[in-house]
């Protein structure tokens, strides 16, 4: 049962790689990589259970946080083209993106 779940997870990760490789825009690729990271967390946890060593869950916790941070960092870099820009804090005006596509019109 666990082996079947593992194989299903690996299949879905392979399918996601297709989207990451042929995604038309940058954001499709980031989405695929983010989802890939979530599945990696699940894979690490399941692998620990299959091998009878649930200590792998520590690595899974760490991977969750690193995945989130890396997604935010990549998106911040492609929005501001720099890591030195502070993100908006309470009470301060929002930093204006230099490559912004104007106001959202919808």
């Amino acid at each position: 049962m666990m082996m079947a779940a593992l194989i299903a997870l690996i299949v879905s990760m392979c399918l996601l790689l297709i989207r990451a490789l042929m995604g038309p825009t940058l954001y499709d690729r980031v989405l695929a990589v983010n989802s890939f990271g979530t599945k990696t967390v699940l894979l690490i946890g399941l692998m620990g259970f299959v091998m009878g060593r649930p200590d792998f869950l520590d690595i899974a916790i760490l991977y969750t946080l690193i995945n989130f941070t890396s997604t935010i960092a990549v998106l911040k870099f492609f929005r501001y083209r720099s890591f030195q820009v502070p993100l908006a804090r309470r009470g301060e005006p929002r930093a204006v993106a230099p490559i912004a596509g104007g106001e959202p019109n919808a």
Binding site: N34, A60, I61, T64, N67, F68
Partner: peptide, 27 residues
């Protein structure tokens, strides 16, 4: 540990989805 992973995953996946959508719209 599993409950920790669940809480982190729920918080971070929602936030990163929002950030992705916002970045795509801004671009």
């Amino acid at each position: 540990k599993i409950v920790c992973i669940l809480i982190f995953l729920m918080l971070t996946s929602a936030t990163s989805s929002h950030v992705l959508a916002n970045a795509a719209l801004t671009a």
